[in-house]
């Protein structure tokens, strides 16, 4: 990959006159190939297959966001056809609501914001994991195929009471 301006009358100790060794050159090519494959894979998984990270949603004023709909009444909204939205507010040191119940098969879109400092929102055993930044809304969607309890915990340090900040999503068996 690199041109050489080496001096053949002045070989290195191992007889090399090029400043790059042949194995070194092959290693470089293999490394680049590997990294290109990685980059392509995540791009396809993210933008092609929809395994997405939370994107740019919308801005709010953290001082007033909790005064008007939908944030003045955080919690679950049933949109019909098994689709749900849930609005969660993070504040030092609790989530509102701290319990959410949905039926098996529900597709839930989580909207989360903070009214004070940064928090985290991690729904255990799932890939719902979002940074909660005051002034922004974080959003991710997931379908719940199995019944069970999924704790959601704050995973960004938010002050001295941070360790107690958690809630629980309960996925209920059909008809239960």
């Amino acid at each position: 990959m690199i041109s050489t301006d080496s001096d053949p009358t002045n070989p290195g100790e191992d007889g090399r006159t090029h400043h790059l060794d042949v194995y070194e050159r092959r290693w470089m090519i293999a490394s680049v190939a590997l990294l290109v494959v990685f980059a392509a894979s995540v791009a396809v998984a993210g933008f092609g297959l929809g395994f997405q990270v939370p994107g740019h949603e919308s801005r709010v004023d953290p001082n007033t966001v909790a005064d008007s709909p939908p944030w003045n009444n955080p919690g679950l909204r049933d949109l019909g056809n098994g689709e749900y939205e849930v609005y969660v507010i993070g504040r030092q040191y609790l989530f509102e609501p701290n319990e959410i119940r949905v039926p098996v098969g529900a597709t839930v879109t989580f909207y989360v914001t903070s009214v004070d400092v940064q928090h985290g929102f991690k729904l255990q055993d799932t890939n719902i994991n979002m940074q909660i930044v005051p002034g922004h809304i974080s959003k991710l969607t997931r379908t719940f195929e199995k019944a069970g309890e999924f704790p959601y915990i704050c995973n960004e340090y938010c002050g001295l009471g941070h360790a107690s900040m958690a809630g629980s999503l309960i996925v209920e068996a059909q008809g239960g």
Partner: peptide, 28 residues
Amino acid sequence: QFVDPGIPNSWKLIHATLTYGVAFPSLL
């Protein structure tokens, strides 16, 4: 900042790709 709400995902992907770039000198 992959899971930050205030950054468009296309920009995140650009930085992810460049990060694979900086892995190259480490492999070297």
